[in-house]
């Protein structure tokens, strides 16, 4: 989604432990990382990558057009703001815990500038064998025509891995992130792959809470999507009203229950997987 093997990536927070570790893994995957940014640490090099004080400099000096953010939560809002103001086309925010009001402002800003934002609290995006912009395991799957779009990080690793093991190729793997306000919603990601010529099947991995899966169902109906859709919803056994880690995963009345989402999606023709490991066989029927 808005990235390719040509993307020139800047890592915000490259000098931190997580930033450095995952920069190395992304580099090994083949991602073209052209710069790092850590305020007041400009002039250094990390893994042979030049570090700048600001995203603006990384854009001017190295032509960066894509960013990935690893800075601590309370500095994340300003890191995203900096990236958007520097005109970065796709900003991927790995850090979790950005306050809701900050995210609402940042999303409005991104929209007004025509820029793209994914996360926060996302594992990122992977176009297998081409570019990894994120923290997901590198060996999950290979390139193909099945898009995998997920709310949850680790659960979607599980599914991407199962697809890989079953020799099913993936056109893109997208984690939209677990924080309440997201730069890219499930529907927006779904919309992208519903229209993507390289994608023949879409796997949607949802979970209890919120109404994004219901909105995907409404989209499928309204846009008359005829690509096969496989969906899995986590949280069927969750007791009502318990907080399960994601703010979005709070069951409130009928909207947000696993059964409500399953009903909405199957009503518009999506195929529902009982467990994550059933997905590869279901997908194979449509390839």
């Amino acid at each position: 989604m808005y990235i390719s093997e040509q993307s020139k990536v800047v890592v915000q927070g490259i000098t931190g432990n997580q930033g450095k570790f995952h920069t190395q893994l992304m580099q090994e995957y083949g991602t073209n990382i052209v710069a790092g940014v850590t305020p007041k640490k400009g002039g250094q090099e990390v893994l042979g990558i030049p570090v700048f004080n600001s995203v603006q400099e990384a854009v001017q000096e190295r032509g960066a057009n894509t960013s990935i953010i690893f800075v601590p939560a309370r500095f994340t809002s300003s890191a995203v703001l900096e990236s958007l103001n520097a005109g970065i086309n796709m900003t991927c925010c790995i850090t979790e815990g950005v306050p809701v009001l900050d995210m609402l402002r940042l999303v409005e800003l991104a929209h007004s500038k025509g820029l793209h934002l994914i996360g926060p609290n996302t594992p990122g995006m992977l176009i297998p064998d081409k570019i990894k912009l994120g923290i997901m395991p590198s060996d999950m799957c290979h390139f193909g025509t099945v898009a995998t779009i997920a709310k949850s990080g680790t659960l979607s690793y599980e599914i991407a891995k199962a697809l890989g093991n079953a020799d099913v190729g993936v056109s893109a793997y997208i984690g939209i992130g677990g924080d309440p306000i997201r730069g890219t919603t499930l529907v927006e990601a779904f919309d992208y792959y519903a229209r993507d010529n390289g994608t023949n099947v879409i796997v949607v991995i949802g979970e209890i809470g919120g109404d994004e899966e219901e909105k995907v169902a409404a989209y499928i109906e309204a846009q008359n999507v005829n690509k096969p859709i496989i969906a899995y919803i986590a949280g069927k056994s969750a007791p009502e009203g318990k907080r399960m880690g994601h703010a979005g995963a709070i069951i409130s009345g009928n909207v947000g229950t696993a059964q409500g989402k399953i009903d909405a999606l199957s009503a518009v023709g999506a195929h529902i997987a009982e467990t994550p490991w059933d997905i590869p066989d279901m997908v194979k029927q449509y390839l």
Binding site: S152, S156, E207, A234, G235, M244, G245, H246
Partner: peptide, 8 residues
Amino acid sequence: NGAGLTMA
């Protein structure tokens, strides 16, 4: 690790 995986 991960809310979704834990729920699954």
